[in-house]
């Protein structure tokens, strides 16, 4: 399935089978908000090891690099929800 996901309400297109991290990076979105201690969040290892690309996806905190895009999925920076 290809279609659109939403980052902070802004539509971002995705390719069939693409993960959220890849779609966001292709759209020029590299900063995924801030970690709870203030570092910039974003893709680092891309294989689910570093926890750097955590985002809120439909209300759940999850690694964007392992999250397969679904039509209409709503993503946002993790904000203060991590702890």
């Amino acid at each position: 399935m290809s279609g659109r996901i939403y980052w902070n309400g802004t539509p971002v297109p995705f390719l069939p089978g693409e993960n959220a991290a890849s779609a966001l990076l292709r759209a020029g979105i590299a900063g995924f908000g801030r970690t709870p201690t203030g570092l910039p969040g974003g893709v680092f290892c891309a294989i689910g090891q570093c926890q750097g690309c955590l985002v809120m996806a439909d209300g759940r905190l999850t690694e964007a690099c392992l999250l397969e895009c679904r039509e209409g999925m709503r993503l946002s920076p993790r904000g203060g929800m991590n702890e």
Binding site: R26, L39, P40, G42, V43, F44, C45, A46, I47
Partner: peptide, 18 residues
């Protein structure tokens, strides 16, 4: 730790998947 600084492996995965 800056955005757009990642592992070389992450770049490989992006290149291979896309």
């Amino acid at each position: 730790t800056l955005p757009n600084v990642m592992t070389a492996g992450a770049l490989q995965i992006r290149t291979k998947t896309l």
